[in-house]
Design a protein around this nucleic acid. Structure first.
Lengths: 237, 237
DNA sequence: CCTAAGCAATAAGTATGACTTTATCGGCTC
DNA sequence: GAGCCGATAAAGTCATACTTATTGCTTAGG
């Protein structure tokens, strides 16, 4: 992913489509791409193939490469998620945060059902680490443990689609922290919920694990929304 | 998507990777692909690019095209979902059904918050159609209305990621019907829940819409699981 | 005047061959 | 046995020629 010519061009074009520089319905042409980026036909075509595989574009003979309507884009594609995060951060975060509220509770429930001793041990250990780092006011360490905690829940769920969302959750968690909206000490109720979740998963209490997680992500979602509002009200008309 | 040489080859290779013919860690080579399918280098490379964009493979110099570990695949990609459905239908359906239990309740809640009169009207109309077709025992018409009902909930949610899952839900609904596990008349409680959801969304009752949908998908999930079990026990040792 | 059939221009799609880059392997030195 | 180093294999890039489908125009027919 580092030195490839393909990836450089892809990055630029993908972002330009995501941010509306090339709105749906507009048309790109391969030879224009060649000229613009100084690349060969093959690279240009491979970039187009990649964009097409995310359903961002579709190539049509005698027409060109047309940008498809937004609702047809594969919005779960990690690359597209990244592009949209830089193109319209607020909207993306809201969408992702809502997705999180949907998935994580069910993932916690699933984890409670099928987690083994090893995972349970790590989960409880992480929850204890959350208590410790929050008491100590070590926000960086807290964040790392928090990220790891949620990653573990998602992977332990045994559902590969849930597992795949751990990067999304990490993005959300780190964004919220990065915006200083968090008090110096994480909210005690959140810490308590993490402990409760860990304990419920360990003991196999599916229902309570799900409920506790629902409570946790609901709170986080509200926090994210108000964080976005604050940010929005910084630049009114 | 119909006549392309690219798509034909992609279809074969994607399926072979999904079904384990080329397990993670194994290596493909471009010139082998050329020979095997009788295609040119350009087409072969574009196929590889497409597979790479789903994170199924990664190309490495002096090595070849190596198949990546399963947990790194973009399991939300619609094409990959299709391949996995044919490769390991039971596991895929379980995964997707679980995803559905996570997403649809939250989507219903979101829809209740932001749906307009037009959508509300269509939703209520659809729920009434469900009642009518279920009374009449017209399973085909019932299924169509059911699919449309859930599609409308997901799109009305205003979350494009939720909306994108309507195809998944449709696949699940139609699969269940196609397996004759459904009684001649759809379960009355399911019909009642649809009506309740429609009404809650119309009146903006976020919480009850979410709860009713949770009840509905929980029931459907159980049904799917037992359907899969029945199917599995048909071919024991 | 409008419709339908045919034609030509256009841009994607495919094919081919040459050249570049870089990760790996295997031998060679110390 | 550890580390350097060149040969090599395969992906990656480039240039060009050729094929195919689509569209918009033009022309013939009603």
């Amino acid at each position: 992913m580092v030195g490839g010519l393909h990836d450089k061009v892809l990055e630029v074009l993908g972002l330009e489509i995501a941010d509306g520089t090339h709105p749906p319905g507009s048309v790109l042409r391969i030879d224009e791409m060649e000229a613009r980026f100084g690349i060969s036909r093959s690279v240009a075509r491979e970039v187009v193939r990649t964009l097409a595989s995310i359903s961002l574009v579709v190539g049509r003979k005698r027409v060109g490469i047309v940008v498809r309507p937004r609702e047809e884009w594969n919005s779960f594609d990690p690359t597209l998620i990244r592009w949209r995060l830089t193109a319209d951060r607020a909207a993306s975060l809201k969408t992702l945060a809502e997705l999180r509220t949907a998935v994580e509770p069910v993932a916690a429930g699933a984890a409670a059902r099928r987690c083994d001793d090893e995972a349970a041990g790590r989960l409880v250990a992480l929850s204890e680490r959350l208590v410790a780092t929050s008491r100590a006011g070590d926000l960086d360490a807290f964040m790392d443990a928090d990220v790891e905690f949620h990653r573990l829940i998602l992977t332990t769920s045994g559902n590969e689609m849930f597992a795949q969302l751990h990067e999304v959750v990490e993005e959300l968690l780190r964004w919220r922290a990065g915006h200083g909206l968090m008090p110096v000490h994480p909210r005690p109720v959140a810490v308590r919920l993490h402990c409760e979740i860990a304990e419920c998963v360990r003991s196999g209490d599916r229902v309570r694990a799900e409920e506790a997680m629902r409570e946790l992500v609901a709170e986080a979602f509200e926090g994210t929304l108000s964080g976005l509002d604050e940010h929005a009200t910084k630049l009114p008309d």
